[in-house]
Each structure stands twice: as structure tokens, then as C-alpha cells.
Nucleic acid binder design. Structure first.
Lengths: 253, 253
DNA sequence: CGCTGAATTGACTACCCTCAACATGAGTGG
DNA sequence: CCACTCATGTTGAGGGTAGTCAATTCAGCG
């Protein structure tokens, strides 16, 4: 299928490899190129820049930086965070391969979030001005980008609901299920995975203290719905976890 | 400037008047037409549909409805809400004149929120397909719509921070300040206004019970930062309210 | 005039935060 | 190799904020 593509020295076996095109990227069915015509995928590919991987703790960009690009995560994981009026950090999201960060910067031409690598991560930089120009020529790209931003909105609203209505246990369960389903979208195990973020990040994201996060993990393990070994998570009772996330067994009255 | 426009029987004095064009709408400096060329404003105007006003409690659309349009609020106020997995309502936002709702529907071609009028309200319907077509011809409209969605994202993230990090008092103070500043953007008083939503809606939005909302209003009144008379709010100490919203006087250590 | 729904206020309770001690593992240098 | 520090995570005890339950007030309305 890609037989007439130039042959790279490295194949796509290394997830941090820079020599990947959208056409042969194994994420292209869930990332930006989704539902684009094959010719359009190549046009998109040509505006994308792939830099060297970020190391754990590296900033992709900082809040206040001039906005130029959005970024698709290609490997690894990153967190986005804002600084509140009080000067406290608030983690606003975790982004896994195939997901796009930076759309908060469009509104005012500067990023409102900082994005930091949680582990070694590589990203595809999409210069926004060129993406806009391309969107005018490829209506389905325009549509797709609108959808991407809309999805970010609905996801943020789900977090709002989570923070507004759910107990600590429900929040943790929901986060685990979110990561689980995003992993399975990438053909990875839904039941066993490694959390890329620290307990501190989880607590910050979910509006809980690190102690509470730790206690909930222990409690979920006692209830035999998950097994925890540091950052390794094994969901042993998916239905049970799902029930917990949705307010305990069929709504305790 | 608009001398060659057809003369309407009613002028723009009645805020619910259907016979308004973007060109002569008093909101056009803060609404969608912002920063558009005057010719482009008229093109935008021609795709916009203005229906009869909504009465209090009327649905503009319901979660699950097929997505066709986004809506600019022209008068009155509406709330958006989702139904959580548990079946509970979660108010995800309040929208005042000049603001746009419905962008959550783009992602999956159906709305994830329902939108309900909090009082008599009129809206401008913007058919999304036609807006997309127009965006291809008017790049600044495309840009503007990206910015609009980006702003929705950053606002939702501010709510996330509020719910994650702030006390009940801080949340209420922040909401009052948000409404205050949005009023002043419309040339209305920043210090005195009428809340269009009920205590129940406020509590739902901010993740608080109605009793707590009521108590906080009373407490803020005791502290002489606001005066409350049912839904009428008078901010008597703007700086004080601002300090409360930002974590008490210069961060109590 | 009574009814209904919204709001206020009080008393009690529970969940989660705070403070604290302790455990674990990685990295450093003797 | 071991002692040391530092960062991260776990567990326990106690307290505070906001939720729950309940009674009361008030406005709107048939």
C-alpha cells in the first residue's frame, strides 16, 4: 500500500522516530488525518514539523508564549496546566498519543496552558497559520478541526461534571476508565497499563490531595476492582470499576 | 452609514425585535461579527435566521438533537446543561447576549448539552454548514470561529480550576465577578445587576448545594461586599469581592 | 385564602483536607 | 558497599468545610 513511499533507514518501529509521515503513522486512524482523503493527508503531512523528542519534565510550551502551532502527541504523554489567579497550578488535562494540544492558544494568540512531558515524548508540530490556509482548500480538514475543538469542549465539560458532582472514589475510577479506553483506541490493553503521571498530578487534575488519591487506590485494591503496583494498574473488575465511576451500585438511595 | 438599509417599523429599541441585522445590532462589537469587514458582516447576516423569542423554561435544543446550528444570544439569558452518567443534571454554563452556544454539537453532529431559556430570550441561529462554507470564502470568519471555540475551551478550563481549587465562597465571588464583567462589556452596570438564574442553577453550576449558595450570599452581605435582594445584586466593594474570589486577602498562610 | 416553589436559616453529619510519621527507591558521594 | 539525601508515595489521627435533613419564611398564583 505504501510500497512507492521512500524507504527510511528506520521503520516505524521506534515510536520516537522523526522519520514518519502521516501516511504511514500507525496513529493516523485516530489522529488529525482521520477521514481525510489520502492526497489530503499528504498535504497535511507536508506542513507538519517533527522535532526531537521531549524528555520528562521538558516544556513543550509555556503559558503566555506566543501561539503559533498546535501539537499532536506521537509518543509518550504530556500534561497541560494553567496557573490560577492564586498562583497555584491546575492540571487541565493529560494527552496521550494521537491527541492534540494547544488549541487554548487560538483565542488570544498566546497559550493559556503550559504543556510538560510526563515521560519521553515526541510530538508533531502543526503550524496554525498553514493549517488555516490548508483548511480553506480542504473543507473536510476545516470540519475536522472544528470537531477536534468541539471534542475538547465536551471533554472539559465532562471534567466539570466530574468535579462538581462526584466523590473522590468516583473521580479516580472515571480517570482510570478514561485512560483505559484511550489505550484501547490505540490497540493497547484496556485492562493493564502504566500511568504516566504522578499521584500529585492525578490529585491536582481531579481536585484531590495526594493523600486522598493514595487512599482511594488502596481502597479500590481492597475492593478487588484493581491491582496497583506503583504506576502499574491492572483493572481486574471492569464492570465494578464502571459502577463505582457512575455513582456506586445503581445509585445508593 | 446604514442609510441605504431598509427602514424597519421598529428600531433596535426592543431587544427581542426580530428585525435586526448584524450591521445595526448593538452587540456587533462583541458578537460574531467582531473584526469582520463591513461587507462580510452583511454576508454573515444573510445566513442568520432570527426566530421568535424563547419564553422562560423553553428549550432552544436538547441534548441528543441533531446538530445543525450554533446560536448567538441576542437578548435575555440561557443556561446549558448536560445529563451525567448518573442521570443528574449538570449546568455547564450561562450565556448572556453576544455569546454563542451550541459548539459542543460539532464533534458528533449532535448536541451534548441542552439549552434552556432562563428568561425571555431571543437568539440568532447560525446554520453551521453555511457558516463553514462562508468561512472558506472569508478567512477572517474562519479564524474568528476558531477563536470563539478556543475561548470556550479556556473558559471551561477556568471553571475546572474553580471547582478543583476554590472554596464555596471563592466560587460564588468568581461567578458574580464573571457576570459583572460580562455586563460591563455590554455597557451595563458592573456593580448592580439582576441574576437571571435561580440559586439552584448557581449551585448546580458551581458544584454546591442550594443551601450553601444561600449561606454564602448571606455571608458576603454580612461582610459588606455585596447587597442581595432576591436576584438583585449590588456589589458594594468590588476590590473586596475580587480578593475573596482570589483566595482571601493576599493568600492566608 | 391556601397552595406551590424558591429561598433562608439552623443543627447535625460525613467526606475529604491537614498535619504528621513512616516507607520506598533513585541518585550521590564517602 | 553503605550511608545519606531527596522525591514520591502510603498510612494514621483529628479537624473543617460543605452536605444532609428539617423547619420556616416569602412571593406568586389559581
Amino acid at each position: 500500500m505504501n510500497a512507492n513511499q521512500p524507504i527510511h533507514i528506520h521503520d516505524t518501529t521506534c515510536p520516537h522516530d522523526r522519520k514518519v509521515s502521516c501516511g504511514n503513522c500507525r496513529l493516523n486512524s485516530i489522529c488529525l488525518p482521520i477521514s481525510l482523503h489520502i492526497d489530503d493527508v499528504e498535504k497535511l503531512n507536508q506542513i507538519i514539523q517533527r522535532g526531537k523528542p521531549l524528555q520528562k519534565g521538558d516544556y513543550l510550551y509555556r503559558a503566555g508564549d506566543a501561539f503559533d502551532s498546535v501539537y499532536a502527541i506521537r509518543s509518550g504523554a504530556v500534561k497541560a496546566l494553567t496557573i490560577s489567579d492564586r498562583g497555584e497550578e491546575q492540571v487541565t488535562g493529560f494527552y496521550l498519543p494521537g491527541e492534540v494540544v494547544g488549541m487554548d492558544g487560538i483565542a488570544n494568540n498566546c497559550y493559556t496552558n503550559s504543556v510538560i512531558a510526563l515521560e519521553t515524548a515526541s510530538v508533531c508540530e502543526i503550524p496554525f497559520n498553514r493549517m488555516e490556509e490548508l483548511s480553506i482548500k480542504i473543507p473536510s480538514l476545516q470540519r475536522h478541526f472544528f470537531q477536534l475543538m468541539s471534542r475538547e469542549i465536551t471533554q472539559d465539560q465532562q471534567i466539570i461534571t466530574l468535579l462538581s458532582k462526584s466523590s473522590a472514589e468516583e473521580r479516580i475510577a472515571a480517570l482510570l476508565l478514561s485512560i483505559s479506553s484511550r489505550n484501547s483506541r490505540r490497540q493497547l490493553s484496556a485492562a493493564a497499563f502504566r500511568l504516566p503521571m504522578s499521584r500529585t498530578d492525578i490529585g491536582n487534575y481531579l481536585g484531590l490531595t495526594i493523600e486522598t488519591v493514595s487512599r482511594i487506590f488502596s481502597r479500590l485494591q481492597q475492593q478487588s476492582v484493581i491491582e496497583v503496583d506503583k504506576k502499574e494498574i491492572h483493572i481486574t473488575n471492569m464492570d465494578g470499576l464502571f459502577n463505582i465511576a457512575n455513582g456506586g451500585d445503581i445509585c445508593h438511595p
